[in-house]
Amino acid sequence: MSTAIRAGGRRHTGRSRRDLAAGAAFLAPTIALIIVLRVAPALAAVGASTKSGLPGSLAAPTFVGADVFARLFAKESFWESVRQTLVFNILVNPIQIALALALAVLLTRRLPASGLWRTLIFLPSAVPLAGSTIVWGIALRPDGPVNGALEILGLPAQPWFTSPDQVVFSMIVLASWIGIGYWMMFLIAGINDIPPVYFEAARIDGAGALRTFFSVTIPMLRRPLLFVLVADTVANFVLFAPVQILTSGGPEGNSNFLMYDIFHKSYELSDPYEASAELVVLLVIMVAIVAVQFRLLRTPEGEE
């Protein structure tokens, strides 16, 4: 009897050790990728942000502590870049998610051929950001078809990307054409996951469409909605291709979003130390947003 228990116990430890070894083996490539692709470059950026050296100098850069950050924070241009990044994000993310939600609700009602409309709106999501940049960069030219359409409606032609007042709005159009349909698909999946009994109950209680939306759809959709909002924000915070291809941060620095500003400082201004400090600022913002996102992805009863 006691030998049986002991044997069982030994078998158990043997098995759990084998499980640990198997888990480690299955996870090894992923862990290696995390170290190489995320941890090491983040540490490198933090390291570089505390050093300073003359551009092109052969002398090793010296440790200067927080001096580079102090220099960065004292610059008006840095705060302008932060402000424009925030302005863009405070506009683009709610606009995209609100429209994605409205379309998701519309297209989960039983409309004729709703699958077709869904596919047509989803189709632009296939266009890579660089492709959307080219399409809208040309469509919004002063002599492009959008201004042509405005003139037919009797409205004046607009400067779009060439105007400091309209460049952020133009970026929003470019990002939303491919973004709205993409996030809409997540929300449609979320709406389809809501048990129909809730809608049925609302209908029996005589709730109208608006009431049903706010009392059933929104609360039941909380998790996918928050996930989509945060994921969209993280993606838009590092928007780069349209700025680099179309505006180089202009006009008047109004599209000089953080990611482009960092790139510009690293390569065109050859100030890798200040660029690293700015990158650390961006990383801290990203990690904060992702931490929020992760809390939302966890199930209420813990992650198992």
Binding site: I31, L37, R38, A42, A48, L279, Q293
Partner: peptide
């Protein structure tokens, strides 16, 4: 480990692309 995996990959790649390219 699940937390670490999801958290680290949810930080957008672009954010660390520049220091990674130096490496």
């Amino acid at each position: 480990i699940f937390t670490v995996v999801v958290l680290s990959f949810l930080v957008p790649f672009e954010a660390i692309a520049i220091p990674l390219s130096r490496m």
